[in-house]
């Protein structure tokens, strides 16, 4: 999608009239359950991939992370989980470093990062969500198997249980990963570009379950590839282009000025390169 195409639409059309301000009222009650990112800076080789990013996410919110290609969206979530080192900054969840409570997080990487020819079945992959809870040297317990089966049922993939993962469509693979994250019984869910190459049914399942998780008080953070109509599903938007451009609800974030800073600046940058 042309990143500038968004600018040609009236901004108001992106702001759903059904926007609920409930996110803020929850925030007042459960401020301790939030994720607080403070001055996060990440270098990738010699390039600053993320500059001094700070924001707060309340529990019970569905967060969309947006920005142009190379904006550092994946870098942000990886740095939050300690998968890549950060130069400065901290990430707290319930006032404690998030990396010290990773057993409470579920992370689903981009589908393209996975070798789908791996010798594993759908059931093997969903059970991976129970590895941490089972502990070392233990087999999967009956309750772990039940939780995994329920997760698979919830995403509508139970009948594919014994299929090799490589035989599934992209959307089905994404739903299996969603089931794995559900089986983890986490409190913080992070998905990196889950909508790339998936069918409409999978997109509906993903948004339905994201909403259920948010309603259960979980934090769900979703890195997004493009600014489609799906943007209306999110309670909280984070707009990124190496710097944090904006963080807040749709009315706060989707302003012409912010969009120009996120997407227009990128285009100007290329113009300068040519000149």
């Amino acid at each position: 999608m042309n990143p500038l195409a968004f600018l040609h639409q009236p901004i108001d059309s992106s702001v759903s009239p059904s926007f609920r301000s409930s996110g803020e009222s929850i925030a007042l009650h459960r401020v301790n359950g939030s994720i607080v990112v403070n001055h996060l800076t990440v270098n990738y080789r010699s390039v600053q991939a993320l500059k001094n990013v700070s924001f707060t996410v309340q529990p019970g919110t569905l967060v969309g992370i947006f920005g142009p290609n190379g904006a550092g969206k994946s870098t942000l979530v990886k740095a939050m989980l300690g998968l890549i080192p950060s130069v400065t900054g901290s990430v707290l969840y319930q006032n404690r470093p998030l990396v010290e409570q990773l057993e409470r997080t579920a992370y689903v990487p981009q589908r393209s990062h996975i070798d789908w020819s791996f010798p594993a079945t759908v059931w093997d992959v969903v059970l991976m969500g129970r590895v941490r809870k089972s502990g070392y040297f233990h087999r999967f317990s009956a309750s772990s198997r039940r939780i995994a089966a329920n997760a698979l049922e919830r995403v509508g993939m139970m009948e594919y249980r014994d299929r090799r993962i490589g035989e599934l469509s992209g959307g089905q693979q994404q739903r299996v990963f969603l089931a794995r994250s559900l089986a983890q019984e986490a409190d913080v869910f992070i998905f990196d570009e889950p909508f790339v190459g998936v069918d409409q049914k999978t997109e509906d399942v993903l948004f339905r379950i994201f909403r259920e998780l948010a309603q259960a008080g979980k934090i769900v953070m979703v890195v997004n590839h493009d600014l489609g109509e799906s943007i209306t599903h999110f309670d909280h938007l984070i707009l990124l282009n190496r710097d944090l451009i904006a963080s807040g609800n749709r009315t706060q974030v989707l302003t012409l000025e912010n969009m120009t800073r996120a997407y227009g600046g990128h285009v100007r940058f290329f113009g300068n390169q040519v000149a």
């Binding site: 992370y107 689903v108 990487p109 996975i114 070798d115 991976m128 590895v131 941490r132 040297f137």
Partner: peptide
């Protein structure tokens, strides 16, 4: 045998397994 399920998770999805704190 003792680390089978952890190593399976790690080999299939290194990032995902690292993100659970393994």
């Amino acid at each position: 045998v003792l680390l089978y399920k952890e190593l399976l998770f790690y080999c299939f999805d290194p990032m995902g397994s690292q993100a659970t704190g393994l």
